[in-house]
């Protein structure tokens, strides 16, 4: 994984649920990850999918990703190039989905209080820092287990690697 990423902030509020991140009506009809990306944030911010750039960062309040267990809500952001999600807190299943698709998730309240929509920021995963014009904010580095999964690119590549190692 890239140790430092730079991108623009897409800022949203509290309790952003998976139905607005990826509408339920597409969960069985849209199977192509690239197409999932086109519906990302459709019911929350129709401008998002058309304008988000590689390594942009989603910044949200508490309980990001609450609701359904649908993995598409993490996949659709990953395929659009989102480099990380920073939230005050994450819903439990979204946290799992994020880790499992290899999306870095950062729990940090200060960033939410200081950065605004459109701000340019830098995230240093090695040092555990979020940097921008409005300040530098620390977050604890990922624990070894999560880092292993994120670094491998997600749970599936991680499992593949583990099985290959065990078979050796």
């Amino acid at each position: 994984m890239q140790t430092v990423i730079k991108g623009k902030v897409w800022k949203y509020g509290d309790d952003i649920n998976t139905d607005v991140i990826f509408p339920g009506k597409y969960t069985y009809t849209v199977n192509d990850p690239a197409e999932m990306g086109e519906h990302a944030m459709e019911d929350l911010d129709p401008d998002f999918a058309a304008n988000v750039q590689q390594n942009d960062v989603i910044l949200a309040g508490k309980n990001f990703g609450c609701g359904s267990s649908r993995e598409q809500a993490a996949v659709c952001l990953k395929v659009k190039g989102v480099g990380a999600i920073i939230a005050s807190t994450f819903s439990r299943i979204y946290f799992r989905n994020g880790v499992n698709v290899g999306m870095p998730l950062i729990t940090n309240r200060d960033a939410y209080d200081h950065f605004e929509h459109g701000d340019s920021i830098e995230i240093d995963f090695e040092k555990g820092e979020i940097r921008g014009e409005k300040g530098t904010f620390k977050f604890p580095p990922f624990n070894e287990f999560f880092f292993g999964i994120i670094d491998a690119g997600g749970l599936i590549p991680y499992t593949r690697k583990r099985i290959q190692e065990e078979n050796r």
């Binding site: 267990s69 993995e71 299943i93 799992r96 989905n97 499992n100 698709v101 749970l155 599936i156 499992t159």
Partner: peptide, 14 residues
Amino acid sequence: TGVTRSETAVIMAT
């Protein structure tokens, strides 16, 4: 508890 699709795939494998 609810888990994700990938996780059920991994349970299938491991």
